Amino acid sequence: MTCPDNVSFSHFLVIPRVTVTGANAISSPITYGFPSITNFLGMMWALQRKVSSAGLSDVTFHGVGVVCHASRLHAARFWGGSGVGMVNTFSQTRNPLNSRGQVAPIIEEGRINLNVSFVFSVNCPRWSLAPASTVKSDLSIILHTLMTLRAASGTLDQDPSISPVQREPWLLGNTPNIESEFMETRFSLLPGFSLVGRHDALIERLRHLRSTSMVEANLMDALVSFCRHEWSYNQHAGEWERTSPISDGWLVPMPVGYVGISDLSGPGDIPESRDNSVPHHFVESIYSVGEWVSPHRISSPVDLIWHADRGQSGIYRCLNSYSANRIHEDD
């Protein structure tokens, strides 16, 4: 299996059944329904800093995977009238009165409640030799530290509907036998689905469009084609027929990072920026295609992991090895 980055890691850390309340459901300017994977990477980096401050400076996080067990979008569905059909709209909250006693404006927000399990790739060689009691103590520190953080602006807590034993974090050593060990433990992540990268499907869809009716199709056309179903009326058969390609799998468009649209500014060069101690870059979202896959169809925890990459100047993206490993297995 291909490792998700060039840095070796010793373990996979699974923190099961975490509830996320009020997470941001608007993942990008054109997608919604689940937080962007960049939110969970940001949570991981915050966890890294907190864990180091708590005395576990030899524990290094390299990537994160998310298995979603349940979700509830804060939205209402209503009939939009003739020619519009059913419409989904986010449920909004009324903000308190402002300092002048006036009604504060309603700023549209999209929120979602989640029940997820986190899978982290972690490097801590000490765990391979440490007593079980020491490892358990370290995992308890990590778990309680995670509960103090936010994921996509949502508050974290452990799922109270399952037993304390089922909520305990557990480890898998990144050994040559990792695939066989994961085959035995992956069912503990069910029922659920994990979002993995399928950039290969986007490229294949572009080839399909260019070979049919859209000779000048670009990647945006291919991305949009995953968002809609196209139909045409067959007069000879007297019925509607779907003309858009039928995807093999639960494929969805998703943001996978950012690309710079300006020069990188030095620390403090941009007035009133959030942090004047770091460089500043104006960016726009990068899009690709992901697939929701059940963990029992994944052969290695490596395929669950997303990690950050800065392979090119001005490009900040999240990478996942599922596509590469899938192509290799198909070959």
Results as ranks from 00 to 15, higher is better:
238 G>C: 00
231 W>N: 06
231 W>Q: 08
220 M>N: 01
258 Y>R: 11
249 G>L: 10
220 M>C: 01
244 S>A: 14
260 G>Q: 08
250 W>H: 12
221 D>M: 01
268 G>V: 04
279 P>D: 13
254 M>K: 03
253 P>H: 06
222 A>Y: 03
250 W>T: 07
232 S>L: 05
247 S>L: 13
222 A>G: 02
276 N>A: 13
251 L>K: 05
230 E>A: 06
280 H>W: 14
220 M>Q: 00
243 T>V: 11
258 Y>H: 12
222 A>L: 02
235 Q>I: 05
234 N>Q: 03
228 R>Q: 09
222 A>Q: 02
260 G>W: 06
229 H>F: 04
259 V>N: 00
243 T>H: 01
250 W>F: 13
264 L>T: 13
276 N>R: 10
268 G>K: 02
267 P>Y: 07
254 M>D: 05
251 L>N: 03
248 D>S: 13
236 H>P: 03
235 Q>M: 08
250 W>C: 09
224 V>W: 12
232 S>G: 02
253 P>V: 10
235 Q>H: 11
274 R>D: 11
266 G>C: 09
223 L>Q: 03
239 E>I: 06
258 Y>P: 04
242 R>Q: 15
257 G>F: 07
231 W>G: 03
252 V>W: 06
273 S>W: 01
228 R>M: 08
264 L>M: 14
274 R>C: 06
262 S>V: 10
226 F>R: 01
241 E>H: 04
254 M>R: 04
251 L>F: 01
246 I>W: 05
249 G>I: 10
236 H>G: 08
234 N>D: 15
264 L>E: 12
259 V>C: 03
274 R>W: 11
279 P>Y: 12
233 Y>L: 07
260 G>D: 08
264 L>D: 06
273 S>T: 12
227 C>Q: 14
265 S>H: 14
237 A>F: 05
245 P>R: 04
274 R>T: 11
261 I>W: 00
270 I>T: 15
235 Q>S: 09
239 E>A: 09
273 S>V: 07
268 G>L: 04
251 L>M: 05
230 E>F: 03
265 S>I: 02
273 S>E: 13
280 H>F: 14
246 I>P: 01
244 S>C: 14
222 A>N: 05
227 C>G: 13
246 I>S: 14
243 T>P: 02
246 I>E: 14
239 E>G: 04
244 S>F: 13
279 P>F: 12
276 N>L: 02
266 G>P: 02
225 S>I: 02
227 C>L: 12
233 Y>G: 08
239 E>R: 15
236 H>S: 15
245 P>C: 03
264 L>A: 09
223 L>D: 01
264 L>H: 06
231 W>E: 06
244 S>E: 12
244 S>P: 12
225 S>V: 01
238 G>V: 00
249 G>V: 11
252 V>N: 02
263 D>L: 03
279 P>R: 11
277 S>F: 08
238 G>N: 01
224 V>N: 14
249 G>T: 08
238 G>D: 00
279 P>C: 11
242 R>Y: 08
241 E>Q: 11
268 G>D: 04
227 C>T: 15
236 H>Q: 15
228 R>V: 10
237 A>V: 06
267 P>V: 06
248 D>I: 08
279 P>W: 12
236 H>E: 15
267 P>M: 05
248 D>T: 14
234 N>C: 06
